[in-house]
Design a protein around this nucleic acid. Structure first.
Lengths: 343, 343
DNA sequence: TACGATCAGGAAATCGGATTCCTAGTTTCC
DNA sequence: GGAAACTAGGAATCCGATTTCCTGATCGTA
């Protein structure tokens, strides 16, 4: 399209009958100019569709008004909302977002970091796929880590408060009178699986309760959720129908996917959720938590807000007020029919 | 953090004992320099960690080496893979990707377009949430539309070949001996629902067959998938168990979500998939198609490749070789147990 | 009336590289 | 041995906007 049509400041100046510097002052509300002059310049700029060249502006401002969004993975289910939340918050600050996905490849990541440095981004937000701490990146501008914290405690990180999330679930379940609670995690070596169990155990202990049986670990699939239910029920007397002596009255799953599988299997075995067994998930991933039968009580980590918060911290750092350490963002308990019946 | 640590070309020049222009030539392999000089400069640049300022480079090159990824929605299930595919392909071309999500807000979109123009991006890739044609954007640089084509046929667009996708499904089903095929769509007013039915009908007609009953439209939820199954079975003799006279021997769903719901309901009604009724989905969205019981035969639109292709077209356009019109990208048939049993 | 203060706006320097143009040396060749 | 042809590298210009000076005009006040 009209390639040559790029309007420069001199074009506006010519049309308005002033000098380029006057145009700059008029459009940026600086310097001292008669209001009539400003208006005339504005009108000329408007008429020509003048949009100042960001490269030139960056060059003299020594700022790019751009931040990098560096995602360790390919912006999957967890890092994507974070990225979107951040992008959203950045727009408000007149900043643009450069997307860089490393796809778990250190070489790619290095390449991206270099590119971001070359672009003199004002700052970088680093996100990951898991909550595992990660090696910090070395760059000459502020960095905020989101979801996956930096392993260097001096860096600024924002992570979901998993412990609080689990506490909310326990409060909810115990408040409903559930006492025999079992736990089903995902992959055993991942922090999300482990931390959630530890908090669960601690919270139960604080109420003179204990989890039923050992925590069960597998993977993050619905299939494992189903199998885990089988294992739990096999552990109690009368594996099938309730004779009033089910081994559990609630199962806490470490993800919505697991919970959904669990609900399916409970139903298939003739048990009612939540009447016989209450079920909770984690993540509030709508296609799982809402499509589950019944819909899941779960914890929303508020990942978009997490990204937004990371952006706020980054903007503050850019403006000379850097944060340090890990900030934990409170999640939100979402109560649905898997614990409350039709309530 | 070492904020002041930005190394300029003059620093490298000083260390190497040459002039800035020589440094530029040495690092860009231009001009005529002794190899020993180039090496000396390279070493100096290396030692100082010199990364040329992209703004300055853009300014004189009159190119930003950046492209905009403008997503109409907030990078959801469909536009996200497209965006990722594009970003991935751009990296290869030494281009950076500016992410801009409009979230269905025309004001936001306009804002983003302005920002992209200000940054003098070399080109823009526009993606949408649906395959509905959209109003083109007016900018002075090349644009490629992905997933949602431009309503102006002179623009370059890349879309999934939905007709072909449905043809592959019909070929597959008919090849398996299925003859009584019903169709369940999503929202009635959306192109995806309609086009898929039309192609289905046309392909069946070409084989002297016809769809069973009218196409059913609802929304895109699993719940609707379940209900649609009820409607279909109610239409035939003996709504429940098979007496050998089920009204259908296959159901084509317009999405994996619908199909998954359909499978669940068929199973709940005691019917076997695929023995009694074969089921197909659309999208190959893993959390649906793989988690379904049985896993779904479906169509993979190859959205990442779509984004990649859009990036290729854009790069070509930037290099002066623009494409015109709509390019349809062939999807891939993914055969799983919902049509083939354990095969 | 005159002189300092204020104001409007322009000229020029600046940001950091890329590129064009030049100028000393060095070769080459007759 | 001298002119033409290269070479290597430096000086200067440019990209487009911002910003700092600076100047001429207007204003206020003694």
């Amino acid at each position: 399209m009209d390639r040559g049509a790029v309007v420069r400041i001199t074009d506006v100046a010519a049309l308005a009958g002033v000098s380029p510097s006057t145009v700059s002052k008029a459009l940026n509300d600086t310097g001292s100019l008669r209001e009539s002059t400003r208006a005339r310049v504005r009108e000329a700029a408007e008429r020509l569709g003048f949009v100042p060249d960001a490269s030139a502006r960056s060059l003299s401002a020594r700022r790019s008004f751009t931040v990098g969004l560096l995602s360790t993975d390919s912006a999957g289910r967890f890092s994507l909302p974070v990225v979107l939340g951040a992008e959203n918050a950045l727009v408000g600050g007149e900043l643009s977002a450069l997307l860089a996905t490393a796809r778990h490849d250190p070489v790619r990541e290095q390449h991206h970091v270099r590119a971001l440095v070359a672009r003199r981004v004002d700052g970088i937000i680093v996100t990951g796929r898991t909550t595992e701490p990660r090696e910090p990146i070395k760059v000459p501008m502020p960095v905020v880590y989101a979801f996956a914290p930096s392993s260097d405690a001096d860096d600024a990180s924002v992570v979901p408060d998993d412990a609080l999330g689990m506490r909310l679930l326990v409060e909810h379940l115990v408040g409903l009178g559930r006492r025999r609670i079992a736990y089903v995690g995902g992959r055993a070596e991942q922090a999300a699986s482990l931390v959630r169990y530890e908090t669960l155990a601690a919270e139960l202990a604080a109420r003179d309760l204990a989890a039923v049986g050992e925590p069960l670990y597998g993977d993050w699939s619905e299939q494992w959720g189903r199998r885990a239910v089988d294992q739990i029920l096999a552990g109690g007397p009368g594996s099938g129908r309730a004779d009033g002596a089910l081994p559990v009255d609630a199962i806490v799953f470490a993800s919505d996917q697991l919970a959904r599988g669990g609900c399916d299997r409970l139903r298939e075995r003739g048990l009612r959720v939540p009447d016989d067994v209450a079920v909770t998930g984690y993540d509030d991933w709508d296609v799982m938590s809402l499509a589950s039968r019944p819909p899941l009580t779960t914890v929303d980590m508020q990942l978009e807000r997490l990204g937004q918060r990371a952006a706020e911290l980054l903007i503050a750092a850019i403006e000379g007020d850097p944060a340090r350490g890990v900030e934990r963002l409170a999640p939100r308990l979402v109560v649905r029919a898997s614990t409350l019946g039709d309530g």
